[in-house]
Amino acid sequence: MQRRQMLKLLGGGMLGGGLTGLCGPGAAATACGGYPAGDRWAFDVLRHDAVIGDHVFTFSRGTASRDTAPRDAGDFVVEVAIDITVGFLGVTLFRFTHRAEEIWRGGLLQALTSETDDDGTLWQVRYERQGDNLRGSVNGAPAEGPGDILPASLWHPDTPRATRLLDTVDGGIKPVAAVVLAPPPAGHFRLTGGIEREVWTDAACGLTRVVFPARDGSLITLARR
Rank of each mutant, 00 (worst) to 15 (best):
G13C: 09
G13E: 03
M14R: 00
L15Y: 00
G16A: 06
G16Y: 01
G16S: 09
G16K: 04
G16N: 11
G17D: 07
G17T: 03
G17P: 04
G17H: 05
G17R: 05
G18E: 05
G18T: 05
G18W: 07
T20H: 06
G21T: 04
G21P: 01
G21C: 06
G21S: 10
G21H: 06
G21Y: 00
L22F: 00
L22I: 01
C23N: 13
G24K: 10
P25C: 02
P25S: 01
G26D: 02
G26R: 10
A27Q: 12
A27N: 05
A27H: 06
A28M: 06
A28I: 02
A29Q: 05
A29R: 11
T30R: 15
A31G: 09
C32E: 02
C32V: 04
G33S: 07
G33C: 09
G33W: 00
Y35N: 03
Y35V: 04
Y35F: 12
P36W: 03
P36H: 06
P36R: 11
P36K: 12
A37K: 15
A37D: 10
A37H: 10
G38L: 14
G38T: 12
G38N: 12
D39G: 14
D39A: 15
D39M: 08
D39P: 02
W41A: 13
W41T: 08
W41M: 12
A42D: 10
A42R: 15
A42M: 11
F43R: 08
F43E: 06
D44S: 14
D44H: 12
V45L: 13
V45H: 13
V45R: 12
V45P: 12
L46F: 11
L46G: 11
L46H: 13
R47K: 15
